[in-house]
Design a protein around this nucleic acid. Sequence first.
DNA 1: CGACGTGTTGACATCCGTCAAATCTGGTGG
DNA 2: CCACCAGATTTGACGGATGTCAACACGTCG
Lengths: 226, 226
Amino acid sequence: MIGALKLSSAQQAMLGRALIASSLDRHERDALLSCAVAVRYEPQDMLFYEHEKARYFYCLLSGYVRLFRGSDGREADISICEPGESFGEGLVLAGDGYNYSAQAMEHAILARFDIAQVKGLLREKPRIAGAIACSLSQHLLSTMDCLARDRMQTSPQRVAHYLLTHCTSEGTRASLRLPFQKSLLARKLGLAPEALSRAFSALRTSGVTVSGRAIAIEDVDLLRQV
Amino acid sequence: MIGALKLSSAQQAMLGRALIASSLDRHERDALLSCAVAVRYEPQDMLFYEHEKARYFYCLLSGYVRLFRGSDGREADISICEPGESFGEGLVLAGDGYNYSAQAMEHAILARFDIAQVKGLLREKPRIAGAIACSLSQHLLSTMDCLARDRMQTSPQRVAHYLLTHCTSEGTRASLRLPFQKSLLARKLGLAPEALSRAFSALRTSGVTVSGRAIAIEDVDLLRQV
DNA sequence: CGACGTGTTGACATCCGTCAAATCTGGTGG
DNA sequence: CCACCAGATTTGACGGATGTCAACACGTCG
């Protein structure tokens, strides 16, 4: 980890639009942001480990962060956080240890909130609890979605869903550029990298062309049928 | 669904101990409970369907409720709720449709909270948002746990974990009685009923004896090694 | 050119879902 | 108490999906 700086005003603006602060008024938002500093991590750096005592929660400003559990050699990713998402915010209300490990992918810049300070804030500005609840609710939904998808869909279907929800479509045709390595996408989807690769080749029949990180979709509706 | 009655005082006491209300003071709790009525469902009754407009959220008082997603013939259970747990409470803060279907297993008695009323309450008693956040945080953790387990563990391991976290141990020996049908346990663990059955027979080698709903564990430590 | 990180492909084993048949269970009626 | 039935569970057989290991292709960078 490199330095703990005050949030720049651009970063403050970005945080204001993030889910964790978007339902707050000006004063509440300023109070919440006063508990935070900006921190920067290098690729592969660990932010914290599972079971470690939790002093901070985070909101991602840029880059990607991987949340995962791993007893031994075996690891399972729980979520790949994208800019604007927060994690660990539930610890403000209950619990005192992290429930998963967090690792930066690429260079990552985050707002780091002091849990004890925010806990103190709750007394005078109780609506902050509502903002946290909002964020938690969103997380819960996406985690449930992920769980249901893992249990119902095969790997090509999961990949197709990812493509369809992340592409920019121009009529019947669409395309996208993966924001990170394929191996990370694989883990996000709960697959081995090889399985992702095979899923992509299986989707060639449905008009998906992959070249590096660039992906082209011939016919959105065709892909939806998968 | 059968009748919508006022909560009995025993039910109110039970709700007070449930996670959703346990962090509130007397006044807040009473205010929250005033938004609720008791409802009763027969086995297999649907409480609501995915995508339906959400008017209520629930807290389970007795029986079991299954939360699941299912596009077509395929269904995936997201959670099996046990007494004391609530579901749909996130809708007080955001969202207006249910994100999953809910079905009663066995006879189920629930406290049904009117979302609009609770939403109104938030203004005068904002600490209720904290209680909701607490509950959501707990849900999120257990859903993440489930997801990680699905991705890391084989069926015997998942079953072993369930047994170890639900048994009453008497020294090295332990036992438990399943609170519901095995087919429901199977879905909770993300397995086909047949797979659960096979997992049980695989665990015989580790000192697990199953007869009907009664399960005996010869050696807790032996089972932990699985 | 060679080394390395990344992604792909093939071969193989395993896990688990599905179907079908056998068996067990609990509850009912005689 | 016993025969009987419906539903729940178990078992066997089978195939499909995916993880794992290893070899290879490809691109980048020195």
